[in-house]
Design a protein around this nucleic acid. Structure first.
Lengths: 132, 132
DNA sequence: AATGATGTACTATATGATATAGAACATATA
DNA sequence: TATATGTTCTATATCATATAGTACATCATT
């Protein structure tokens, strides 16, 4: 069950909210390679947004190699191992966070604990969804 | 020596480029609590941007408690330990990155190695600047 | 006391990003 | 054939970003 919600009042653009939540569903295994995404008009109807906005989210997901258009004209989740470009972009964003953490007095161990804490709370939330 | 540069063609807003670089200088100890920031007009002249743009960066730094206006009307770097709000914001940004990493097949150890690598390369770059 | 430098507060304008809307088209499916 | 799909185009409205100019209060220096 693909649950996605958008906040029209948030500062985060709607297309990015959609993008982020699809990536999240993939990250917890709720969306797996081979699974189809809803048609952009369908998704737009459910979320009560314009289908162009959904298309923008799908476009970026495709540009990043996370989804692909299959022969039947439907978007499907790909297996998308980390490539150099994605890694580089992720490093830049992570560097900003690490800078802020250090600027506020964190040391290296505290940063690792910070990461561990987020991953643990993630696993707790999706305990039932984990396989095996 | 406070070296800051802006890229007018980058997609990242100029005020955020300035914000990020000041935070970076603090994070590596090149800017320390008690140090003054250049006057916004001075900084703007050096970077060849409008002083309102510098003010916006300073405003956000002040809102986040990273700098403060001292009695002589100059901005000074504060000691700004992690507070609940800052931690929460950082967690949200970090969660996005962790989601993308997991979505691309990283496991928990690979994420920690990813973090460690960034910190190590940071330390290498600033070896000479480290004290003691 | 006077001058200059500082942050701050307003107005204004221009450009790009975001979101919506509608229309049209090619292709795949039923 | 008819429907659903992604895609492409134009168009409009709103907000964020960046620039610009002006004015003012306060602080430091002369």
């Amino acid at each position: 069950m693909l649950t996605i919600s958008v906040d029209h009042n948030a500062k985060t653009p709607i297309y990015k909210q959609i993008f982020d939540q699809i990536v999240h569903h993939i990250s917890i295994g709720e969306l797996q390679p081979g699974n189809y995404l809803p048609a952009s008009r369908t998704m737009a109807g459910i979320l009560d947004v314009n289908f162009h906005t959904v298309n923008k989210a799908y476009d970026i997901l495709r540009d990043q190699g996370i989804i692909a258009l299959s022969r039947n004209k439907k978007y499907v989740v790909k297996n998308s191992p980390m490539d150099d470009l994605s890694l580089h972009r992720l490093e830049e964003r992570e560097s900003e966070i690490i800078d802020e953490a250090f600027a506020r007095g964190f040391n290296e161990k505290e940063i690792h604990d910070f990461i561990t804490g987020i991953i643990k709370s993630r696993n707790r939330k999706n305990k039932g969804a984990l396989k095996k």
